[in-house]
């Protein structure tokens, strides 16, 4: 992306246009191919070991999302957008909120307080073979992994693609940027419904 900024100094106008956002680079593609497995592993490590070492769902989720960002920068945002389904991106965020809300609200149904992890002990203690205090640790890990990491990675990926597409008014089809922003109504319907469901659940508590 840095190489496409060299064409400035246009003599005729005060404004220079940007070159296209994607330039295929063998160096970047090879580097990203080599680095990605390590970044993904590190992101998962940070997420899963949040209770016993520095890090947690937020940092790990950001690293997992950055894998997709790197793929998009190396192989083109449009091809990455076509490869990554909207259902996956929205699903990560909404499922994360649903899991977090469920883990938080179920203890209230069991007679405990909001997010009282030990309220699971009388119900699940025997089947899982865990002691009461262990439910706090595994509850925290469930919230970090299933809740925060899912939400952060999904939202960061989504923000990236939303920013890349930019703002294109439906009736104002300007040149250039408008062509790379297809508005697929049919795909978005079930996803946005799921989003309103999740937020409705949050409002209810």
């Amino acid at each position: 992306m840095s190489s496409d900024r060299s064409a400035d100094g246009d003599a005729e106008g005060t404004i220079t246009r940007q070159r296209p956002i994607y330039t295929e680079s063998q160096v970047i593609m090879t580097t990203v191919k080599v680095v990605i497995p390590f970044v993904l592993t590190y992101g998962l490590f940070i997420t899963f070991h949040g209770t016993s070492s520095p890090g947690g769902g937020f940092q790990g989720g950001a690293l997992i999302a950055s894998v997709v960002l790197m793929i998009a920068f190396a192989f083109g945002i449009e091809s990455t957008r076509a490869w990554l389904s909207n259902t996956l991106v929205v699903g990560l965020g909404t499922v994360g909120v649903a899991i977090f809300a469920a883990i938080a609200l179920i203890p209230m149904a069991l007679g405990g307080d909001f997010l009282e992890y030990t309220a699971y002990y009388p119900v699940l203690g025997d089947t899982l073979g865990l002691k009461e205090y262990e439910f706090v640790k595994y509850g925290m890990e469930a919230v970090e992994i299933g809740g925060i990491a899912f939400i952060v990675s999904g939202v960061l990926m989504g923000l990236f693609f939303a920013l890349a597409a930019g703002f294109t008014p439906a009736d104002l089809d300007v040149t250039g940027a408008a062509s790379d922003a297809p508005t697929d109504e049919a795909v978005g319907d079930d996803a946005s419904n799921a989003a309103t469901d999740a937020t409705g659940e949050v409002d209810a508590e």
Partner: peptide
């Protein structure tokens, strides 16, 4: 951004 989907 006036969109309904992140990726399409």
């Amino acid at each position: 951004l006036g969109r309904e989907v992140f990726t399409a």
